[in-house]
Design a binder for these strands. Structure first.
Lengths: 248, 248
DNA sequence: AAGTTGCCTTGACGCAGATCAAGCGGTGAA
DNA sequence: TTCACCGCTTGATCTGCGTCAAGGCAACTT
């Protein structure tokens, strides 16, 4: 554990989010020390599969940089994305040792891993970590349930608008970027990945993006960059009843 | 705390599942005592709403008997069920004090409640409870994600078959009922509730149930009772790749 | 006995989104 | 320079499920 690491720890953002979010927030030096001893980093290239569904998984991890996805696949190839992992998101499941879905790196990804056994042991001794993990898991459960509403009941147009809004919100939580009063968003996903996320086909995704553009809800710059002139309008298109306090 | 209660505690099933699942499994008498002091029971009638989305929710609870549902509703009335609470399931969210979805009693329901504040305090002192809760939440997250695959990618027929399989499996975990080699299942939901769960309309639910019956995948006895002659056949119809070890 | 209500089934029809297919622009390799 | 490939767009057509509508059955009320 270098001095550099320690500095990170006592700033409000570290290179290893789990350390920060689970432990550092409370600045418990001994817990930190224990975590430091069992952690290691791994890198993955864009497109690379990190874990296959059903594989033995003997670590838990936290995304340091890049974007990874969780997907489930049916025998005939139908795919559904069930989670999007952004930096600071947690993956892995204490108390189970095989993965339930494929984890794939969408961009180049760096993960901060902890071997599961020692991590679990540490959890039994440091309630803060278990509690923090519980909070994070409950958050994920909430967003999974929001996603169920989207998948089950929203139209294609609403789905696209929701996705853009969600990405904008997540982006904004990190660094809000505005130019000329517009909210700017980079789509980190291909049309096909969006389709897998939204339960649509890539053609429908493309058509609806074009439609939203035509109607002035979003502005397209290139294929992956979106500007949002009016966030409330977007939320209306998404069928959401509130903006979740993002711009409050 | 009555003698009766104590007896339950040291049997392998209590009237209050959280006590059993979170604490009693490890037989920690003092944790139990603390839980006992802050718990109380509440009953709800079939159809009654337990909490409205957005309401202040100052307790967490565990279902003792009956069936409750979690639903989200859009302004225009489109509804999506996002969870089905069977006995022993947990509801409520430590660390947040408003409900994120409607909780409704489908049948008469008895809940074992804990006021949130003291429950949270207790959690900080007793790592077992937080850990058990984490495990339960991770399980819920897994099933939410399985449900996302269903909502996003399965056909109406597959959705119905999946629902029947899931209810059969849950039922079986408690008490497996077979007559003449058949698995018997009572549907605890109306057609409309099934539709809200599966992201369909009640007409489609009805049609697909009829179709599965016509094709011999299920036998209907009355409107709510189903017999399954061949569970593997049902799973095949559901598009699942394994039976999750239920009959192993 | 007749009417009401809740839950369910079935039919006819229309539409949102899937499927099939063609083509475009950018990028990298030969 | 040409070719191939990938990600994307757009058009034409098809289809599964939603929508609208009618009616059946069982339980309950008057």
């Amino acid at each position: 554990m270098s001095l550099q690491d320690l500095q990170f720890v006592h700033q409000d953002c570290g290179d290893c989010p789990i350390r920060h979010r689970a432990v550092c927030a409370r600045c418990e030096a001994d817990e930190l020390a224990r975590l430091e001893q069992i952690k290691y980093y791994r890198s993955y290239q864009a497109g690379q599969t990190i874990v296959w569904s059903g594989d033995r998984m003997d670590f838990v991890a936290s995304v340091v940089s890049g974007i990874a996805t969780l997907t489930q696949t049916m025998e005939d190839g139908r795919r559904q994305m069930v989670g999007l992992l952004l930096p600071s998101d947690f993956v892995g499941r204490p108390g189970r040792n095989s993965a339930a879905y494929d984890v794939t790196a969408t961009t180049d990804v760096v993960m901060c891993c902890f071997r599961k056994k020692p991590f679990e042991e540490m959890m039994t001794q440091t309630p803060h970590v278990a509690q923090r993990l519980l909070e994070m898991t409950l958050d994920e459960l909430d967003s999974a349930r929001e996603w169920m509403l989207l998948l089950g009941r929203k139209t294609a147009r609403e789905k696209i608008a929701s996705l853009v809004a969600i990405i904008a919100r997540r982006d904004a939580a990190l660094n809000l970027r505005r130019t000329k009063g517009m909210l700017n968003v980079d789509l980190p996903l291909t049309r096909e990945e969006m389709a897998d996320y939204l339960g649509l086909t890539l053609e429908t995704v493309s058509r609806q993006i074009s439609a939203l553009k035509r109607d002035g809800v979003i502005h397209l710059e290139g294929k992956r960059h979106i500007a949002i002139p009016d966030f409330d309008r977007l939320l209306e298109e998404a069928g959401d009843d509130s903006d979740g306090g993002m711009l409050a």
